[in-house]
Every structure is written in structure tokens, then in C-alpha cells.
Amino acid sequence: MDLLVTDETNQLTESQKELIVSVIEFAAQDVNINLPEDTEMSVTVVDDNEIRVINREHRDKDRATDVISFALEEDSVDGFDFDLEELGMPRNIGDIFISIDKVTSQAKEYNHSFDRELAFLTLHGFLHLNGYDHMTETDEIEMFDLQRKILSDYGLKR
């Protein structure tokens, strides 16, 4: 997987950037998400001001949030019937934006480490890119149970 991690805040350590990559790679194996080797995605860490702008411009919600995912793939795209692998093109599944301010405040609020919250939000965004959501109560229970399982299996418990 080609995973670009960008820290626009310059506040993450190298080990925290590696944590982002490691959690995504682990999750892909743990839930058996079969991503081609040349799959591309990005994770960008921003502050509350920047994520508020992104949230306002793309979701019409004028407030800071903790994580936003932009999936580039949908179940089907009308009018397009081709296989990226056949064309020799990488599969880009999307982009994740994480607010470092929310990582810090939510880690304190939930009484766990900064790294655990960073991993949780990274994983949350990654699952969204792979079709999981929490629009219904049933979906929310499934997604959050899966997140807890993956983080526990990874070794990051609350």
C-alpha cells in the first residue's frame, strides 16, 4: 500500500506517523480487506481551524470535527465500466483528515493516551474508506465494535 502521511501541524513524532501506517496495515489484514498492493491513500493531520474549513466546504457543517474521510470509490460509478488493474493504474481509496487538537482533547476526555486516540481516529477514517459507516444504530454498533476489536488486537486498549 502506498500511504502518504502528512503532518501539517508539525506536532507528530516519527513514531506517531509510523503508528498511523502500522494501524492501517494491521486493520487491512485483521478485517481481511483485500486491497491491491499498489493501493493509494493519504492521511493528513491538521488543526481545528483547518478541519473546520474542510467540514464547512465539503459537509456544510461549520464546526471542527475529529476526523473526516473522503472515499474516492463508490459501490458503482454510472457510465464507467473498467478495471484499474487492467489499465495498470493504482487503486486510490481516498483521503483522511485528522484534527490534532481533537486527538489531544479527546484523549484527555476519554482518559487514554494520545497514541490510542490517534490510532482510533485513523482506524475510524480507514474503515469509512472501506465501506463501513454508522448511519444506523446497527451499523454504528458493528463499526465501533470492530474498531475496539482491531485496536485491542493491535495492543491499544483503553
Rank of each mutant, 00 (worst) to 15 (best):
D153E: 11
L84Y: 10
S99P: 10
L87H: 14
R63E: 11
L19M: 05
D81R: 11
R56H: 06
I141V: 05
E140W: 01
L84R: 15
R63A: 13
L127C: 14
Q147L: 08
R56E: 00
P90N: 15
Q106S: 01
E50W: 08
L72W: 04
E50R: 11
Y154I: 09
F97R: 13
D139I: 08
Q29T: 06
D145G: 02
T138V: 03
T6P: 09
L19E: 09
I24G: 03
R52Q: 02
D95L: 11
S105L: 05
F97P: 11
D95M: 13
V21W: 10
L35C: 09
R63C: 00
I98M: 12
H58Q: 08
R91N: 12
I150D: 09
L35T: 05
L118Q: 14
D133T: 08
F97E: 03
L123F: 02
D78E: 06
G94N: 12
L4A: 07
S105P: 03
D75C: 11
D60R: 09
V31N: 10
E86S: 15
K102V: 02
D30K: 00
I54Y: 04
K149S: 05
K102A: 00
V23H: 13
L19P: 02
S76C: 15
F80K: 06
V31K: 06
S22L: 06
F97W: 14
D145M: 00
G131S: 15
D60A: 12
D115K: 02
E109K: 14
L3Y: 07
L87D: 05
E57V: 14
V46W: 01
E8P: 02
E117L: 11
T122E: 00
D153I: 01
V67T: 03
E40C: 13
E25P: 01
D133V: 08
E86A: 13
D75T: 05
S76N: 12
V103K: 11
A28V: 02
I93E: 10
S99D: 08
I150M: 04
S15W: 05
L12Y: 07
S152G: 05
R63N: 10
D2N: 15
T138H: 10
F126K: 00
T104R: 08
L19W: 01
M89H: 07
F70Y: 03
V67N: 09
E85S: 13
V103S: 00
I98H: 11
L72A: 12
E73D: 12
H128E: 03
D95A: 12
D47Y: 08
V45A: 08
I33W: 03
F120I: 07
E74R: 05
K102M: 14
F97N: 03
E40Q: 10
I100G: 09
L72E: 14
K108F: 06
E140Y: 12
